[in-house]
Design a protein around this nucleic acid. Structure first.
Length: 447
DNA sequence: TCTGGGGTCCTAGGACCC
DNA sequence: TCTGGGGTCCTAGGACCC
């Protein structure tokens, strides 16, 4: 274990012998004191979902494993083990395709609760290394390690300690990229995979990036890659041959950022922000894809009710009130529309959410058309302001209390124990406008 | 091969106001 | 007459990420 990590230790542009970590600091070039340089770590868990599944079922170890659903299901791969990847399986690939490429793979359903729990463990380990930690997703994080030398030593030594502690505390492997920007840290962690550490020594950013495909820059996807190829830009180094103004004309704001990124700079936007700053959510959404397309109004509206409840619940948990509600509709042929409505007063109530969503649905669904997916999203969060309407406020408060009670029941007895939507078929319209007294009970609303 | 679910950010156009 | 300019809010769609 120890050795396998060390064999991955590299400092770009320098030759040093693994195993002599103490020496590495002497390789650090001296940079002008006037230039403030950050030391950013990007910690990325290796095949996170697969690794977590292996903890619960050790028999999966070393085998071709696909997480995300069963081989004949509608859906895509969430994560694939390195063994499965050898057969061309990768995340976002349809499960059925994965099954064809790798017939002997073991398909397992995802367990979000397990991943969240492990992610929290990961987070705890990270916070013991720096006060500035930002989870960028469930399985990766940025750390600002600037000024932690006295505590943890130079970057590679700190990374090594972090890597070891992560393994001991979570039994999971991670890869760590180190650089002067988020961008460099992120790109280098990807290059360090699996189970490695890579430090890009300050000053070497452009050299490190130049030979990489433009696609390796975070934010450059299929589409941008194609337009860049059209200009003859294939490697990051090619970007530096173009004027910034040209790139800006061509790609707008992004072009400008791109020019900076080619030099290893965070270049504006989120990348430039302080690590750990403002992580307030901007939107909350839930969506559902049917196993078989449907055109049944009852089924569709019942789904919208459930999704509205899920969104409402999350809003209450987060103490958020949303002004904008959005319906998402995907038809059989995959054409997708979104329709939004902004309320004068923000809400966190299931009923108010559903009311608007249903209105949007009835206005926009081409009746009789087969639907593949429905989604409900809440955004434009605001602190709730009293309307000055006491009667309305009182009603709102009582609803809120009832819904919180329902939330607690769900916590205790499971998601399906309580639903406003139960008994939806026939007359549900009246029911949802009733007083909330009939809520509790095992999915059986009282009349 | 038939395409999940949860997010973020950007663009562009129209409404509306001053 | 035939046409300003800026700012902000809202909506819809799309690229991208894990």
């Amino acid at each position: 274990m120890y050795l396998s990590v060390l064999s991955w230790l590299m400092a770009f542009g320098h030759n040093h012998t693994p195993g002599r970590l103490g020496k590495i600091s002497s390789h650090r070039p001296v940079f002008p004191m006037s230039t403030f340089t950050r030391t950013i770590f990007h910690v990325d868990m290796d095949a996170f979902f697969v690794s977590v599944e292996e903890l619960f079922n050790p028999e999966l170890k070393g085998k071709a494993v696909v997480v995300g659903g069963q081989r004949d299901e509608r859906g895509v791969v969430s994560a694939a083990s390195y063994e499965a990847r050898k057969f061309g399986v990768h995340s976002a690939m349809p499960l059925r395709t994965a099954a064809k490429l790798c017939p002997h793979a073991i398909f397992v359903n995802g367990h979000p609760d397990r991943y969240r729990e492990c992610s929290e463990k990961v987070h705890r380990v990270l916070t013991s290394f720096s006060p500035q930690v930002e989870m960028a997703s469930i399985d990766e994080a940025y750390l600002d390690m600037t000024g932690t030398e006295r505590l943890h030593g130079p970057p590679l030594r700190a990374a090594h300690l972090l890597h070891q502690k992560m393994k001991v505390e979570t039994q999971l492997n991670c890869s760590i990229g180190i650089g002067i920007s988020r961008l460099i840290a992120k790109v280098s962690s990807a290059r360090a995979k699996p189970n490695g550490v890579l430090w890009i020594v300050p000053g070497q950013e452009a050299n490190f990036l130049a030979p990489l495909d433009v696609r390796e820059i975070p934010g450059v996807g299929k589409v941008t890659e194609q337009s860049l190829h059209g200009l003859g830009i294939r490697k990051v180094g090619d970007l530096t041959r173009f004027e910034e103004t040209f790139l800006e004309e061509r790609f707008g704001k992004w072009g400008l950022a791109l020019a900076g990124k080619a030099r290893g700079e965070d270049a504006g936007g989120w990348f430039d922000s302080e690590v750990g700053a403002d992580t307030d959510p901007k939107s909350i959404s839930h969506e559902h894809t049917y196993n078989e397309d449907t055109a049944s109004v009852e089924q569709l509206e019942s789904t919208l009710m459930r999704l509205s409840e899920m969104v409402g619940r999350r809003l209450r948990e987060g103490g958020l009130h949303a002004r904008t509600l959005q319906l998402k509709l995907r038809y059989k042929d995959f054409t997708t529309i979104t329709r939004a409505h902004t309320l004068p007063v923000p809400t966190q109530l299931d009923t108010e959410i559903f009311e608007q969503i249903r209105l949007l649905f009835r206005k926009n669904w081409r009746a009789g058309t087969q639907v593949r997916l429905l989604g409900v999203q809440a955004s434009s969060f605001e602190a709730q302001t009293g309307q000055g309407d006491l009667l309305e406020d009182g009603r709102r408060r009582r609803w809120q209390q009832a819904l919180s009670a329902a939330d607690r029941l769900r916590d205790k007895f499971g998601e399906s124990s309580v639903s406003l939507a139960s008994g939806l078929r026939g007359g549900f319209r009246e029911r949802i406008h009733e007083s909330p007294i009939g809520l509790p009970g095992k999915g059986k609303p009282r009349e």
